[in-house]
Design a protein around this nucleic acid. Structure first.
Lengths: 206, 206
DNA sequence: CACTTATACGGAACAATGTTCCACTTAGCA
DNA sequence: TGCTAAGTGGAACATTGTTCCGTATAAGTG
């Protein structure tokens, strides 16, 4: 279910047509190699391994993707876009609160796609530095809209920041080492219930 | 298995008296060096650096602490014990729900103590492998008691697993790269509010 | 097509770090 | 004092990130 019917033309989204033919070919091969390696072995797989799988030298990898995060970004672009689109779709087909809950839950599949992506997002490792900005930058506006709509309709409280919620969601969505997502589901659900709780009652302060 | 009365003398907790004097000296020096290095530079500081700071060779480090996590464990033992003790103290001085909330919030200080400890707990890196088991093993029973008490008194719902909650808490408690804990506080508070919400639809909402 | 050149390539080379191994040192003991 | 098992230090090897540069070639140009 991950792979949708791609047109068979590789859409690398990273290849300005001004690029030399061999360069383009190598970029494509790298993306292809990285895609499979990231899924199987994780986003922290050695560069040499990816280079070998793509049949190029490491120099070529660094030429096109100076930082590891650049390679990851190129690869998860689709997933990020899909997550953003899901916000649109969900809000059309569900009540605001439910749409929000479903979108948050969908973060689990988003993060689960590439092994190690979750930890990478919060590790602070300089090799991944630009990843959080990229992901948060894309997803925050989408979540913001869902959250605002749900707040206005009264499905959830209105004192929660989209950025906080997204960060929390991404942290909880990261699967456990053994790849089990059941716990993630429960934790996300618990967090979402926090949105439904109205602090106006008793406490809520710590 | 609770720690029995530590005296305030340097309690390395890793030094059976059967140990040779020089070995004991080295272990102490290592713990001292590691403690400061972990706080300043993070738990992923190179072994060589720690060895140098302690004035020993790397072989000596590996002799006493075969895995990096062994060194970390020795160092955070106090903090873990303090967090466990806090459960006791809090439940004596607060209502059940409040005690639970405060304890969850205290995870932020616990995790914030050593730079990089949070990510290490969830990274899946084999060098830290035994850490999660160690930490969860100590903290889960404590949280379980708090959670159960709060559920019985009706302060929180009763369908949440202590392990799930602890995992979630630890993930959310991990500070952002810049060391800001404000967001962590808000996220934890939101999670705790999820405990107060009753999924059956009625009772939780006042 | 032959020639030129900017572009790209590959991989050797260097640096940082984890980890092992063993010749040498020394604490504890008789 | 001398013996021996325990402990030490750091050289040596393995892995990986990253840079650099001599070589190869795509794509124009005449």
């Amino acid at each position: 279910m991950v792979k949708t019917a791609d047109t068979d033309k590789e859409m690398t989204s990273d290849a300005p047509s001004s690029m030399r033919a061999d360069a383009r070919r190598n970029v494509d091969a790298l993306l292809e190699a990285a895609r499979s390696v990231f899924t199987e072995s994780g986003v922290d797989t050695p560069i040499r391994t990816i280079a070998a799988k793509a049949g190029v030298g490491v120099g070529t990898v660094y030429r096109h993707f100076p930082q590891r995060s650049d390679l990851i970004k190129a690869i998860i672009q689709r997933e990020v876009a899909a997550q953003v689109e899901a916000a649109e779709t969900l809000s059309k087909n569900h009540k605001t609160g439910e749409a929000l809950a479903l979108w948050m839950s969908r973060l689990i599949e988003f993060v689960g796609t590439k092994r190690g992506l979750g930890p990478a997002l919060h590790s602070g490792d300089p090799a991944y530095q630009s990843l959080p900005d990229f992901v948060l930058g894309q997803l925050t506006p989408a979540l913001h809209r869902l959250l605002k709509a749900a707040a206005i309709s009264g499905d959830v409280r209105d004192d929660v920041d989209a950025n906080d919620l997204l960060n929390a969601g991404l942290r909880l969505a990261t699967p456990t080492n053994d790849g089990d997502t059941a716990q993630a589901k429960r934790m996300i659900a618990l967090l979402v219930d926090g949105l439904r709780y109205s602090p106006s009652g008793t406490s809520g302060e710590v």
